[in-house]
Design a protein around this nucleic acid. Structure first.
Lengths: 212, 212
DNA sequence: ATCCTAATGCAACTGTTGTCGCAGTAGGGA
DNA sequence: TCCCTACTGCGACAACAGTTGCATTAGGAT
């Protein structure tokens, strides 16, 4: 299917490479660039297939065939964005690392309108939802090293689930900014990180354990 | 009560009551009932103004004029839903209360498709976003009593910010279910509640304090 | 250089979304 | 009872979203 074509082009999985050459690649680049531009300039609401096609100087039909809909476009952009070499900061303590991550989350959420747009899209498009889930899964996976370092330092006990620690630490920031529409609140970011760091040090995030 | 909520939600200031009588009220009831039915039966995607109008046996134009768009409809439904007499559970401990609240959140998020639909709508409609913010603000406000009881029992120190405690405790569940699209995970709910309860008992959620 | 065909451009078409002007209906007050 | 007018119904309309059939273009291989 056309969407599959887009997906394959995204990851570069050349399983069924049809025509990776000049024109297709060029058009893809034009379209994705147009998506990013429109997203930044006018936000998610202005992101129609037609607008993207016009901006990219490509015909509507081409975009519909290769990406299917707006969600497909955003999914493609998102998958490309996941390929950056992001690594969590290393401040020397678990609490410091979690606080720093929360700071980046806050900036990403309030600064770049792209993130909010992608989340909005994930509620409307299955493709975008999948892409977003992949993106976050990978991000949390990369964050695991923060907990591993803490374990090596003896800050947290053996068996601590890294993912849950990071999710618990960052979730309040997402909640505050995304759902409650509150402004960025650095105090919240610090408190959440500190609370989770304390709980983790007490072994509350050890798998199979927990209260009850 | 419902009528008042309608007026405020729609944009007509409730100060100027125009014609609260028979037909308008009847049509409003029909339309909102149609919204709830369609939401439960077919989900958010099927919730177009036209579909609602047809189900309610009301003309499209009427719905457009009174509610403007799907977001307005959902905002109205949401304001009505906020009038229930919900109270947080009282289990005797802060950790137990937070765990119980998380359980209800989990059920509400995974069981009722209404909530997810409203969140999706909040990303598309300013009205829905406002209504949702009001709804959650009020819910968190009601949850404050949980922390107040803990304070009375001496579980948490004076000055603990109730809202932050509850937000920190519930956020991981929202994150897991809503954004990460993971299944309901009762372990996560308990761990998050336990971690926050511990952190709160240590005074990490006292206003003005926190790490650094 | 030539051919094959995947990918694109193009235009016409359908269905949906949202708006507008006008006429009809039904509360509520006199 | 009668009138006023807010509200609703109705149809036409424009704008947008998405699809389809066909012609054209341009990689890539021979």
């Amino acid at each position: 299917m056309t969407a599959g074509g887009a997906a394959s082009a995204i990851g570069g999985t050349a399983a069924v490479v049809r025509r990776p050459g000049g024109r297709s690649a060029r058009i893809r680049a034009q379209v994705l660039e147009a998506v990013r531009e429109l997203l930044v300039e006018q936000g998610f609401d202005a992101l129609s297939v037609d607008a993207v096609a016009e901006r990219a100087a490509v015909h509507r039909t081409t975009v519909y065939r290769r990406w299917r809909d707006v969600g497909g476009l955003l999914a493609d952009v998102l998958d490309a964005a996941g390929d950056d070499g992001w690594q969590p900061p290393d401040t020397g303590t678990l609490e410091g690392d979690l606080t720093a991550v929360n700071g980046e989350v806050e900036v990403g959420l309030t600064g770049e309108p792209v993130t909010a747009a992608l989340i909005a899209a994930s509620f409307r498009s299955t493709q975008a939802a999948e892409a977003l889930r992949r993106f976050w899964d990978e991000r949390y996976e990369r964050c695991a090293v923060v907990v591993e370092r803490a374990l090596a330092r003896g800050e947290v006990p053996e068996g601590t689930c890294a993912r849950r620690v990071v999710v618990a630490a960052t979730a309040p920031v997402y909640q505050q900014v995304l759902l409650l529409r509150g402004g960025a609140d650095p105090t919240l970011a610090r408190q959440a990180a500190a609370g989770v760091a304390l709980a983790a040090s007490q072994g509350l995030f050890v798998v199979g354990e927990g209260p009850g």
